[in-house]
C-alpha cells in the first residue's frame, strides 16, 4: 500500500478505519454470507442420507446411520438416470457450441473492423437486456413448425440461442483487451487468422472462457422454464423437470427428494471445482499482461 507513503512528513496519517476493524467486519460479512448460502445446502445434504421418519423426528439432526442407498433408489427406481443423461447431453452439447461459436464471434467482433460490426454488437446487447421469457411462445411455435418440439435437439438449439449473446458479450470485452501487438507479432511469425485464434486468443482468453463456460453450464443445468414448455415426453425430461415430477411422486418422502436434488447438484459442484481457479482468475483479471 502506498497510502501511508503518500502522506507528507510531520502530518499524522489519517486512518479512515482501523485496519483490524476493517478486516474483522469483512470476515464477519463473508462468514454470514457463507452460512447463509452453505447452510441450506448442508441441511439438504444431511437429509439426503436420512429417511423421512428420521427427518420428521428431528429436522436438523446429524445423520445416523448414513442411508447411502437412497441415492441408488432415486437413481434406479425413479428414472433419474434417464433425466441425468438427457440433461448431460443437452447441456454439454449446448455449452460446447456456445463456447466455441461464442469465442469465435467475440474474437471477430473484438478484432476485425467490418461493416455492421457495432450493429451486430448492439443487437446482441439488446437481446441480453430483454427477459428471455418473451420469446417463449414464438419459440414454441417455431419448434413445432420445424418438427423440433419435444426433442432434445430442439431444446439444445434453444439453449444455445439463450446463452450465446451474453457469452459473446462477456468474451468480447475480454478479448478486446488483448493487445493488438500480439496479433501482429503472430502474423509476422507466419500465422493466419484461424491459427491465431487457436494459438493466441483461446489460450490467453482461457480464464474468461472458463468463466462463461461454468456460468452457462450452471444456468442450463438448472434451466426449468424452457424445458418444461418445450418437452412433453417423460422419456425426454431433463433433470429439473425430472425432479419436479419426482417431487410429485414422492410427495411425502422428503429424504428421497433430498437425495434426488443432491444427484442433480453434484455435476455443478464438480464443474465448479474443476474450473473455479480459472473462474476466479477470469473475474479478477484486470488486463492481459
Amino acid at each position: 500500500m502506498t497510502y501511508q507513503n503518500a502522506q507528507p512528513h510531520g502530518i499524522k496519517p489519517f486512518k479512515p478505519l482501523p485496519r483490524l476493524f476493517g478486516r474483522g467486519a469483512l470476515a464477519l460479512v463473508i462468514g454470514a454470507y457463507t452460512v447463509y448460502t452453505l447452510g441450506p445446502f448442508l441441511w439438504l445434504a444431511t437429509m439426503s442420507v436420512r429417511n423421512t421418519g428420521e427427518i420428521s423426528a428431528d429436522h436438523y439432526a446429524w445423520p445416523s446411520p448414513f442411508r447411502w442407498e437412497q441415492f441408488r433408489v432415486a437413481w434406479v427406481d425413479s428414472a433419474f438416470d434417464t433425466y441425468f443423461w438427457n440433461s448431460a447431453i443437452v447441456v454439454v452439447t449446448a455449452v460446447a457450441v456456445v463456447t466455441l461459436v461464442g469465442a469465435a464471434a467475440a474474437h471477430a467482433l473484438a478484432r476485425y473492423r467490418f461493416r455492421g460490426n457495432r450493429i451486430i454488437y448492439g443487437i446482441l446487447f439488446s437481446s441480453i437486456i430483454f427477459p428471455p421469457q418473451i420469446t417463449l411462445i414464438s419459440l414454441y411455435q417455431i419448434l413445432v413448425d420445424y418438427n423440433l418440439y419435444n426433442s432434445l435437439t430442439g431444446l439444445t438449439l434453444v439453449y444455445i440461442s439463450l446463452q450465446l449473446p451474453l457469452t459473446v458479450y462477456l468474451l468480447e470485452g475480454f478479448f478486446a483487451r488483448i493487445p493488438q501487438d500480439l496479433f501482429d507479432a503472430a502474423k509476422m511469425d507466419g500465422y493466419g487468422d484461424i491459427e491465431i485464434f487457436r494459438r493466441i486468443v483461446l489460450p490467453i482468453g482461457m480464464p474468461a472462457i472458463a468463466t462463461t463456460l461454468i456460468l452457462n453450464f450452471i444456468q442450463l443445468w438448472n434451466e426449468f422454464l424452457f424445458a418444461v414448455v418445450l418437452i412433453s415426453d417423460p422419456e425426454k425430461r431433463t433433470l429439473p423437470i425430472g425432479i419436479r415430477a419426482f417431487m410429485g411422486d414422492h410427495f411425502q418422502d422428503i429424504g428421497m427428494i433430498a437425495a434426488g436434488v443432491m444427484i442433480s447438484v453434484i455435476p455443478v459442484i464438480i464443474a465448479y471445482a474443476f474450473f473455479s481457479e480459472k473462474l476466479i482468475r477470469g473475474m479478477t483479471a484486470g488486463a492481459v499482461k
Binding site: 493487445p179 501487438d181 500480439l182 501482429d184 507479432a185 503472430a186 493466441i200 490467453i204 492481459v288 499482461k289
Partner: peptide
Amino acid sequence: FQSYALYP
C-alpha cells in the same frame, strides 16, 4: 515491437 509483444 515497443511492447515486446511476447506471448504471455
